[in-house]
Design a protein around this nucleic acid. Sequence first.
DNA 1: TTTCGTGCAAAAATTTTGCACAAGC
DNA 2: GCTTGTGCAAAATTTTTGCACGAAA
Lengths: 143, 143
Amino acid sequence: MGAETTDFAQALRDAGLRVTPQRMVLLSILMGSADHPNADELLARARAVDDSVALATVYRTLSALEEAGLIRKLTLENEPARYEITPAAEHEHIVDIDSGEVIEISCDEINRLRRELLDRLGYEIVSQNTLIRARRIRKPGQG
Amino acid sequence: MGAETTDFAQALRDAGLRVTPQRMVLLSILMGSADHPNADELLARARAVDDSVALATVYRTLSALEEAGLIRKLTLENEPARYEITPAAEHEHIVDIDSGEVIEISCDEINRLRRELLDRLGYEIVSQNTLIRARRIRKPGQG
DNA sequence: TTTCGTGCAAAAATTTTGCACAAGC
DNA sequence: GCTTGTGCAAAATTTTTGCACGAAA
């Protein structure tokens, strides 16, 4: 069995980035987070591990990781940007407008349709971000 | 023939908003714009008509129009928010990553799939914003 | 005439940057 | 040793807000 899932140093090297404690910490936090933390939250979580991390470093690291394709920036509405590990498959983000909770859904059919549509227009998709503002009307799978 | 398309005063009244020259100007600019202007651009275009309009008024008017459902805020990446008249049908925004140009496409099939998917999860869609970052690979409809 | 909108300037919030020092390779 | 990253503080950018005055209903 490989050690890929936790070899942050190797992931950084593979991305052509220098390995620093700050980058290791931030990358590990992002990989271990089920939610989509923003810069402030990442700073707090990083400082729980290494007290000296600065907010400027968080922003610079996020830019570097994003440019390397390791993470994705989520620009939601009326709130600071959030970040997630680059997903294996494109997916949609649903924001529950009452609770603020963000959940993800993946739909191959939508992804395929979108790719075909763009292709017909002469475009190749680089990345995609769908933000759905929705309201819970009942428990799933019922009614 | 009706005057609906240019009766900005009535549109404001219908939305429960007071009719002011500033709101009339901003609403008319948004209705007449093929692009998706941001607050700064709206200020410039509004001032070409009425020199006294302030940026604070632009922001406050945009909030009011958005809350009334007349316009939609587009939160793209790494740039100030843009605004558009609330579209009749949900659509996707494609940002050409080389030119920065924003174009729109509408796909009933995707809208339907998305609605069904959310419904199955117990959600009702309030609004939706898809941002596709894409690169032109050829002229449309060829290849 | 009462309520709400506007302009101005100041403030808030998020993100970026200059600089000196430290650390990676 | 050369190059790049980091912390700090200051700055830049976008958006919001307090206040006094003016306009809408």
